[in-house]
């Protein structure tokens, strides 16, 4: 049994014009100790997915359908009290902005101790302090600074304090939402490295949510590419980067400059993701895809399984057989951009 099994999950947001289908029929599994990356543009539903799993959806958000099985229990069936118990202890979250996630009027120590005592009422102060020291050492912070307030820490230190807090109860699943996006590259590198070694030590699994494909390439075993609330493609990180079948994966990969390459044409995916209140009936990417046909606009693609990948594209076989060079060529996309330019105002 997998540690986490998400099945046909639908998470909607109530809006004045009707429900926005932020996550729409997403299924995947996460094995114990595994590192799963979720990539996609803003608004693709990756953060909503994480919030649904840990149970911190905003008021307007609700789970419309589907299940989230965590270690055999369906989270969607649980009461709030049951979910609260899981939070931090079994599932913890490292948010993007540590600045906003730490309480400015309490010291870091007080905040970590509070989390420990809430979840393990019997824990004495001495033991809690020991955990704080241990966690600070683990993330590379001086334990003597635990009595500082968040504003006394630099951005990188705050992010590490946030990780220390997320780890304090040794959760079996960590959700990291853009854990290093706000940080400088050297700090990012140190934190990613630190997270990897900690994870190995406490054998937890992790979901890394990011827009940065290079972070995923370096930290994850498996990747889910999301687009407009749905999974576009999923599979082992090597295959996703080497031989993807979905045009969106190919495009996203080529949109990033690589420091190891001197001259490279970047690819621009023209247009914008569709409105999720009234999503298109066919493939959601069809409007921006340079290879889309009428079939794409009308029929929703089924899963295509090959080479360890699950790809939602009608033409996965054709891409594999002959179209990949065409899809991998920025001019293909730029011509499509020129043809559809203008009139994309929101």
């Amino acid at each position: 049994m997998s540690q986490l099994e998400v099945e046909d999950l639908e998470v909607y947001y109530e809006t004045e014009e009707g429900p926005a289908q932020a996550v729409d029929g997403v299924s995947f599994e996460l094995e114990e100790g595994e590192n799963l990356g979720i990539v996609g543009e803003s608004g693709c539903g990756k953060t909503t997915l994480a919030k649904a799993i840990i149970g911190i959806l905003p008021d307007a958000g609700y789970i419309n359908d589907g299940s989230i099985n965590f270690q055999g229990d369906d989270l969607t069936e649980m009461t709030n009290a049951q979910r609260r118990r899981l939070k931090w202890e079994e599932i913890s979250m490292i948010a993007q902005s540590a600045m906003n996630s730490l309480d400015p009027v309490y010291t870091i120590r007080e905040q970590i101790v509070e989390a420990i005592e809430t979840h393990r009422p019997g824990t004495g102060r001495v033991e809690s302090d020991e955990i704080v020291t241990e966690m600070f050492e683990l993330v590379g912070l001086d334990p003597e600074r635990a009595d500082d307030y968040p504003h006394q820490f630099s951005g990188g230190m705050r992010q590490r304090a946030m990780i220390a807090m997320a780890l304090a109860l040794e959760p079996s699943l960590m959700l990291a939402d853009e854990p290093t996006t706000a940080l400088d590259v050297i700090m990012q590198d140190q934190i990613l490295k630190r997270m990897a070694s900690i994870q190995e030590e406490i054998n937890s699994s992790m979901m890394v949510i990011t827009h940065d494909v290079s972070v995923v390439a370096e930290t994850c075993d498996r990747v889910i590419v999301m687009y407009a609330g749905k999974i576009a493609e999923e599979g082992p990180v090597e295959e996703i980067f080497d031989q993807p079948y979905h045009p969106y994966t190919i495009g996203l990969k080529r949109a990033f400059p690589n420091i190891r390459k001197s001259s490279q044409d970047l690819l621009s995916i023209s247009g914008y993701p569709p409105e999720l209140i009234d999503p298109p009936q066919g493939c959601r990417f069809a409007e921006r895809c340079p290879m889309a046909t009428d079939k794409c606009r009308e029929e929703e693609p089924e899963a295509h399984y090959k080479n360890g990948l699950r790809s939602y594209c009608h033409y996965a076989d054709e891409i594999d057989a002959e179209l990949r060079p065409y899809a991998d060529d920025p001019t293909t996309w730029n011509q499509a951009a020129a043809a559809t330019d203008g009139g994309v105002g929101e």
């Binding site: 590259v185 990012q188 590198d189 494909v213 290079s214 370096e218 980067f241 690589n258 190891r260």
Partner: peptide, 11 residues
């Protein structure tokens, strides 16, 4: 600084 830059290629 350059060594810290992640590379979008798992290989």
């Amino acid at each position: 600084l350059i060594n810290a830059v992640p590379v979008p290629d798992p290989g």
